[in-house]
Write a protein that binds this DNA or RNA. Structure first.
Lengths: 110, 110
DNA sequence: TATTTATATTGCAATATTACGATATAAATA
DNA sequence: TATTTATATCGTAATATTGCAATATAAATA
């Protein structure tokens, strides 16, 4: 089918899945890493940073924006992008739970 | 196309993408959460925990296993699953970098 | 050994994703 | 206003993902 049965899962599970899925592409990871590396908002040079055509990059940026992981504002005729704290905040708890679980894990069998 | 141009990205970026992509489905999040919730290895009741048919669950488990996020060992005629620390360790740094960046971020423009 | 139980694999239909050329849009500038 | 520059959207081809029925496999048990 290719269609996810979102209705069978909790809102939180679906939300987390959307966020993780958005991160789940090397181009989108490269975009996130670039935004961190330059340590500021990036206006207009994201296309040049990636080995993909402009429409493709635009599509990836849109997906990150839709997922709530980046924000973009018009700045003249360019667009300034930066990370969106809200999105990453939502993932944070999930991974912190996993990490603290893994640190304290007993009952090892595998 | 539907084919990701992995050759244009670093190994680390591709590896992270594979991990995030594997997490990016509500059923697979539910599996991870269940493994944490029961706080032990789970032998054989994962199919019953999910609102999906057995072959579908088997497929999701396979994807999590391929990505290195869970481990499974035969235990009699059932299989015991638990989280695979290695996989989550690889994601940890990525999110820790993002979080410490977001906490110290200056240069806000959006 | 035959049956039961648990899980995996195969095959396939429906849908989603990835990528990009062509084109549109919209602000800046000549 | 015409042109340039930056980004978005459309359309489409190639491939991937999701889900499940049918079936296979493999260990446990009757």
């Amino acid at each position: 089918m290719g269609i996810t049965k979102t209705e069978h899962f909790t809102e939180a599970q679906n939300e987390l899945a959307v966020l993780a899925k958005a991160i789940g592409h090397p181009a989108r990871i490269a975009i996130i890493q670039h935004l961190i590396k330059v340590n500021s908002c990036v206006c207009g040079d994201i296309v040049n940073e990636l080995p993909l055509a402009q429409p493709t990059v635009s599509q990836h940026l849109k997906e990150l924006k839709n997922a709530g992981l980046i924000k973009g504002n018009f700045e003249g005729n360019a667009i300034c992008y930066c990370l969106n704290e809200e999105g990453f905040e939502k993932i944070k708890d999930f991974f912190e739970n996993i990490n603290s679980y893994l640190e304290n894990k007993k009952n090892q069998c595998c």
